[in-house]
Design a protein around this nucleic acid. Structure first.
Lengths: 341, 341
DNA sequence: GAATTTTAGGAAAACGCTTGACATATGGTG
DNA sequence: CACCATATGTCAAGCGTTTTCCTAAAATTC
């Protein structure tokens, strides 16, 4: 490990001069600076991150905090794609990313203490379910932080527009003549509440009847519960003509039930997912869904956080809402045209 | 930020005493140690990771290196599950994990230099495709390192037994009467080569004919190429009765083609995937596949690396081979029983 | 050419922690 | 009681940087 000291000896100057040269400080002559830089690169110098961190109080590391389910980042494509986007954005600015499972065993201390210990420069908080004490401690801390799909008035946030997304999806489905639309939703989170509210609002406005039995709870990224809910919906005296699923994964649960009952999609029933993950495009027919802008979410969250870190005094915590995009697959039948079959 | 110094002042002792007390060194009396610990926890002390790292030369951070495709860890469930397992194992030992995309923009310097700069205590290298110069520099470095699904004689490795896995899969399929088995394989990697070799070996031993046209290249985690390859196979004068896919994702590409041609699985054609990701179990019928032991792979890689880090002199680089498990779904028809209809 | 400003570079402290050498106190032994 | 071993705690160096303050030399001004 080459140190500044060794470079200084080689160049016959002081450690301070070397440091300043490499950091392009103005009070070193161009000649000296170049000489030092040449020597450094020739010797294969790499600064010591720990020493720098200790001195500057900046670790150049970001914590990626997962609450609801630590595995989700590794297994749910929605979170995975956001994480990938954050990472690629962060690495351009020289930051490392460290995913933290906040329910993890290693998390004996409070999350806040752990973050302080590690000295993360900032945090991106995603996958928020409940808001325990330890969580709020983090949110109210002094650490720069951006939340995703969750809002706190004093914190920056990037959220996918679930209200509009749901509305777009329903508008599309309604436009194709559907009047009995059921909604199998995910577990209770901010996202779910937004989608539910948007669903009810739309149905009210459109004058659709929403029997309680049309709204069923299930779990994100899980096929079984969605399949069971689907079965219940199909057994109703007046079953829906279209079913919305919590996400694209869950829609597969529905597909399984339809196959079991020899019901064909979209001829006999229509469905839609949510997220627009690759799976949705790989199915045949392609799943109609709302594609969330994972790349944008990650990029904006990363940039927002960088601003909060680098210019904390100028930072105004905004809540950025990113639109999703209707992915028109082939799983919603058009009831307004005479059936050709 | 509470420091040792502040605790020392409060306790009326020296910084050294505080440090030793908290680190449970033997030369501090139980009484003093307790007093110090009480004060520390009361004051909410958290050690400073950077200072500790600087002094001890141990960062308690592990780099998770991805070569082939930096996104794969975030999008391919096989890698994701391994990563999740590594993380949960590492966090028990107090290590942070940092995924590094080795093709990334931030990776201007060599990977080795970056690792030295960050001071990772060890590396887990996965998703290895080609082996460029910069990669070998890393492999031959002094940094403790374990590879996954790739072997170097002087480095620890954990590999999924693709040879046996392939053999188990083929044995099962052959046992059900299939004699014309095609193999759509992934891009050229160590894993692919093992599977191919195992495939050819089995077919030779079993006396199966393997026309060149039965072996087709595709790409892991991609449906389109697999779908195209499937189409070609179906168009052969003598098409296979069973098709093996690079992985479970790719098998979906096959399913799409079958649906397009109104071919039913497994009645008219049999298929098998590889990996045993959740998707495989969510399909109907369940996909017959080899489930790789992602949890075991992650756990063993993590433990092996920890040994290499903590007892470098005792460390003998072993290559651990973990078996997969046949997941008997419903996509391989039994040709040995008379067809019921 | 003296006074002043500018420029280039150095000395040294500090960041918070660990650790081996050293000092002091305590108790046991002959 | 002198001597030594052990137990307990302190000193201080040092990890590799950054950065403030300072000095000496050079350039500029009058």
């Amino acid at each position: 490990m080459i140190t500044l000291k060794e470079i200084a000896e080689r160049c016959g100057c002081s450690v301070a001069t070397v440091s300043k040269s490499l950091n392009e400080m103005p009070d070193i002559s161009a000649l000296t600076a170049q000489r030092v830089r040449d020597a450094a690169s020739e010797m294969g110098y790499q600064p010591n991150a720990a020493a720098r961190t200790l001195k500057t109080n900046r670790s150049r590391t970001i914590g990626l905090m997962f609450f609801l389910d630590g595995r989700s980042v590794w297994s749910h494509e929605y979170f995975g794609m956001i994480a990938a986007s954050i990472q690629s954005e962060m690495e351009e600015s020289g930051y490392d990313l460290t995913p933290i499972n906040c329910d993890g065993v290693g998390m004996r201390a409070s999350q806040l203490n752990y973050c302080r210990y590690r000295g993360y420069d900032g945090l991106i908080v995603m996958s928020v379910g409940s808001t325990g004490e330890s969580f709020m401690e983090l949110i109210d801390s002094e650490i720069p932080l951006v939340t995703i799909d969750y809002e706190f008035h004093h914190r920056g946030a990037v959220i996918s527009d679930n209200v509009q997304g749901m509305r777009d999806l329903l508008t599309y489905i309604h436009g194709r003549g559907h009047r009995r639309i059921a909604f199998i939703h995910g577990e209770d989170t901010s996202v779910t509440r937004n989608r539910l509210a948007s669903y009810y609002t739309f149905c009210d406005e459109a004058g659709l009847c929403v029997p309680d039995a049309y709204v069923k709870p299930a779990i994100y990224r899980q096929t079984q519960r969605a399949q069971a809910a689907t079965r219940e919906l199909l057994a109703l005296a007046q079953p829906p003509t279209c079913i919305l699923y919590p996400d694209d994964y869950a829609a597969v649960g529905g597909l399984n039930e339809f196959r079991r009952q020899h019901i064909t999609v979209p001829a006999q029933i229509s469905i839609a997912g949510y997220d627009g993950i690759e799976l949705a495009r790989d199915l045949t027919p392609m799943l109609t869904t709302i594609q969330q802008d994972t790349t944008g979410i990650g990029r904006h969250a990363a940039r927002m956080l960088l601003k909060a870190i680098e210019k904390p005094r100028n930072f105004i915590p905004r809540h950025m809402v990113l639109p999703g995009k209707l992915l028109e697959g082939g799983t919603v039948k058009d009831l307004t045209v005479p059936d050709a079959g």
